Amino acid sequence: MTDTSTIQDTPPTVEVVEQSDGQSCVKLTGSWNLRSLVTATELNRKISSHAANKNIQWDLSSIEVLDSASSLILWKAWGKKLPVALQLKPEHQRLFDRWQAQKIPEPEPVGSSSSLIIKYGYQLFANFWGQLLQLVTLLGQLFLDIGYLLLHPGDIPWSEISITIYESGVRALGITALVGFLIGIVLSYLSALQLKIFGAEIYIIDILGLSVIRELGPLLAAILVAGRSGSAMTAQIGIMRVTEELDALSAMGISHSLRLTLPKVMALTIVLPLIGVWTSALALIGGMVSAQNTLDISYQQFFLKLPDVVPLTNVFIGLGKSAVFGLMIALIACHFGFRIKPNTESLGNETTNSVVAAITVVIMVDAVFAILFMNVGMP
């Protein structure tokens, strides 16, 4: 009985022999498999040098073992075609027939840096345009659902809206209060350092009132909610995709938009203005505490002067801005949630994209509001 391990361990060799007709012949012997080729690093160089001579003959009939990796090395050295004078076993012929039948893909040529930049820019624009169309489609479906609920009030998902208000609003009161209070302290302290130079300490109330009620309060609340609740909404829909719950809802004829998107959008649109007012109030309290310690402005003086220096219009601007923030955060969270594929990598990527996109859109919308209402609500 033949010992196969001895045959497989026979080292591969390459030698050039002279035949009776004076022609040179490259003779290959031994075991030509991947395990043997690992230790024989010079074989590839020898084969390439002999293959450069197109008139030389090749004898592979003495090869004991030949696998696909070794046949591919020989095939590439021969220029992806069999030599004219080739001797080999019939069972080895099938390996070369396979490489001859299929086309090995060539590596794509690397283009210039300018073409790569143009291609990348086009892909980026196409991706942005596609996501924008999907977001507009989601918004249009939302308006259709609102019209349907106006005609069928009994189908309003009150329980889903209530749960989202609690998760996104009530449970966010702690972190928004802490951040608002600290921002108020920091803003008041930094402003006090400059106001002391000009002897205008009393104007700290004007700076805090306008900046917090009109800008910082709603903006801080929206950024915190986008990072906290927006990511949770995206991950929730993504988990439903991974666990095939979305497919189950479709099979039962339940609308994704009516049961998932609409409650989240309505809840955030309602609750974010309230969180904005809460954050602004805590920021004013923090600024008031800092003004008392640094500028010796009493709490009573702060409360009495604040309504005079901050017109009521600024409060309504902040509320309207917060409602738009809530609408956009919920829409973006649901949009990226439905884009998640049924794997964990996509879940993490789209959740990150959701938070980044929501915060970016919030800042862009805030800039639009600042331009549109530039001369509105100023004392």
Rank of each mutant, 00 (worst) to 15 (best):
D3A: 11
T4I: 12
E15M: 08
V16W: 02
V16D: 10
V26A: 03
L37T: 01
V38C: 11
A40G: 08
E42I: 06
E42Q: 14
S49A: 08
H50V: 01
N53S: 13
N55L: 06
W58K: 00
E64M: 05
E64S: 14
W78D: 08
Q87H: 11
Q93V: 02
L95Q: 05
R98F: 07
S113W: 06
K119M: 07
K119W: 06
F125Q: 11
F125N: 07
L132A: 13
L139Y: 15
L144I: 05
I146V: 15
G154A: 15
D155G: 07
W158F: 15
S162R: 04
T164W: 15
E167H: 08
A177M: 02
Y189A: 12
Q194G: 05
L195Y: 01
F198L: 01
G209K: 03
G209A: 06
V212G: 02
G217I: 04
G217T: 10
P218E: 10
P218V: 11
A221K: 05
A226Q: 03
R228N: 09
S229I: 01
S231V: 03
T234E: 05
Q236K: 07
G238N: 09
M240D: 15
R241V: 04
D247C: 00
I254E: 02
S257D: 10
S257W: 00
T279F: 01
S280A: 14
A281Q: 09
L282Y: 05
I285K: 15
V289K: 09
Q301Y: 06
L306Y: 13
T313Y: 10
V315M: 08
G320Q: 01
M328W: 15
I329R: 12
I329C: 05
C334E: 00
F336D: 12
F338L: 11
N343E: 01
G348T: 04
G348E: 03
N349G: 14
V355C: 08
V355G: 10
I359R: 07
N375Y: 06
